[in-house]
């Protein structure tokens, strides 16, 4: 049984990891940190390098949680990527960070978080960044 944590190098992402690790410690479950860049471009600012993922794992160790970092590529279907990970790892919970976005911004760019919320087959825990 595992907990999936959506991670991007942002305050929201850090908050999600924080919450995910806490849940992992409480339930004694493995945590899979999902850092999924968009397929296509050679560079994605959302992808973290090896140093950053090592730091995340260190945080997990400090919290006493067994964790791994996965970096699958996604197309226009982040929700599906999460779904297939849920199936593959036997996920019981998805943790994602939410950021505030204006109505117009949401209309133009859409909201991945919303689609994960709607399409996920397991409970989704959403957290906000620390102010």
């Amino acid at each position: 049984m595992t907990i999936l944590v959506g991670y991007l190098p942002t305050p929201e992402g850090d908050a999600a990891v924080e919450a995910g690790l806490r849940e992992g410690a409480l339930r004694s479950e493995r945590v899979v940190i999902v850092n999924s860049p968009r397929r296509g471009a050679p560079v994605d600012e959302h992808k973290i390098d090896d140093d950053a993922s090592a730091a995340l794992l260190a945080r997990a160790r400090a919290a006493g949680v067994d964790a791994e970092v996965r970096q699958p590529l996604h197309d226009d279907d982040l929700a599906e990527t999460f779904e297939s990970l849920v199936e593959e790892t036997g996920g019981t919970l998805i943790v994602i960070g939410l950021r505030h976005r204006s109505l117009v911004g949401k209309f133009i760019l859409g909201s991945e978080a919303q689609r994960i919320l709607m399409e996920a087959s397991v409970p989704v825990l959403t957290v906000k960044a620390d102010r």
Binding site: R39, G40, D75, D76, I108, L109, G110
Partner: peptide, 11 residues
């Protein structure tokens, strides 16, 4: 071919 979202494709 590029699997962009509907929104960005149209825009």
């Amino acid at each position: 071919l590029g699997k962009e979202s509907w929104r960005s494709s149209i825009v």
